[in-house]
Computed example of a mutant assay.
Amino acid sequence: MKEVKHHKQHNLCQTRPAYRQGRRLTAIKSYTVSSESQHLFIYGVPKINLHSELKSLCSKYGKIIKMHLVADHKTEIFTECFHVVYEKIEIARKAKRMLDNRSFYGGILHVCYTPEYESVEETRNKLQLRNQSILQYKS
């Protein structure tokens, strides 16, 4: 599988002014509607058969439609990558925020959106949902 640029983890920003810096260092990355997705890749899962443990961790944030191991994806040594599909994009946003950089059985998880796995229908629904939320905000 081809390595995609937006799956790489960014370095932490250490040049922010003190008044802009939060309690912990974070990377600077912005997302658009098209780059967010209900499809997530979870990297850094130790290769010790943790499928059910990861599924129970991910299901804390909402309903999972599908979850499977991505066998042909480049990962660090002794780790695996999982593809998780949530029912709603709001759930995926929360799960990404809560799971990214989290310790899991000795590994540090890296979570990223994978909009390239969306169907045309999923993309259409995502854009319509965003359109509706903007119209509600204007009213």
Rank of each mutant, 00 (worst) to 15 (best):
K88L: 14
G106S: 08
E3P: 05
L129R: 11
L99M: 15
K126C: 06
E90C: 10
F41Y: 12
H73V: 10
I28R: 09
I42M: 02
A27L: 04
E121C: 04
H73N: 06
S103T: 10
S56I: 06
Y105H: 13
M67H: 01
H68E: 01
K94N: 14
I77W: 00
R23K: 13
A18N: 13
R130K: 04
F78L: 06
R102C: 09
K8H: 14
I28P: 05
K138S: 00
H68K: 00
L109D: 02
C13S: 14
R97C: 07
Q9C: 05
F104M: 09
K29R: 14
L12F: 15
T123Y: 01
A71H: 05
S56G: 08
V84A: 06
G44L: 06
I77H: 02
N11M: 03
Q128L: 13
H68A: 00
Y31P: 07
V4W: 04
Y19T: 10
S56M: 11
Y61E: 01
Q21P: 08
K5M: 15
H39S: 14
K74R: 15
A71S: 06
T79K: 02
L12P: 08
M67Y: 00
G107T: 05
Q132S: 12
S37W: 13
F82D: 00
A92Y: 07
F104Y: 04
I91D: 00
H7E: 10
V84R: 02
A71W: 01
S119M: 10
H83P: 02
V111N: 06
P115Q: 14
T114I: 07
E80H: 05
P115D: 12
E3C: 11
Q9I: 05
V45M: 00
F41H: 05
C112S: 11
G106T: 09
V84S: 03
C112Y: 00
A27C: 08
K47I: 02
A18H: 12
Q14R: 02
L50K: 01
V84Y: 03
Y117H: 11
L127S: 11
N125Y: 12
L54C: 00
C112I: 07
Q14V: 04
K66Q: 08
I108F: 02
T114K: 06
L135G: 08
L69G: 05
G62F: 01
R93I: 15
L57T: 02
I134N: 05
K8M: 13
R24D: 13
E36A: 15
R102S: 10
H6Y: 14
H51M: 04
R20M: 10
Y61Q: 05
K5L: 13
H83I: 03
T26W: 07
R23Q: 13
Y19W: 11
G44K: 04
N131L: 04
R124I: 14
K96P: 08
L109M: 03
G106I: 12
V85T: 05
L25E: 12
N49I: 03
Q136M: 11
K2R: 15
Y61C: 03
K8E: 13
V84T: 08
I108Q: 10
K74N: 09
Q21I: 07
K47V: 04
T123K: 07
M98P: 01
T32S: 15
I65P: 01
Q9F: 06
H51V: 00
I28H: 03
S56A: 09
Y86F: 08
L57I: 05
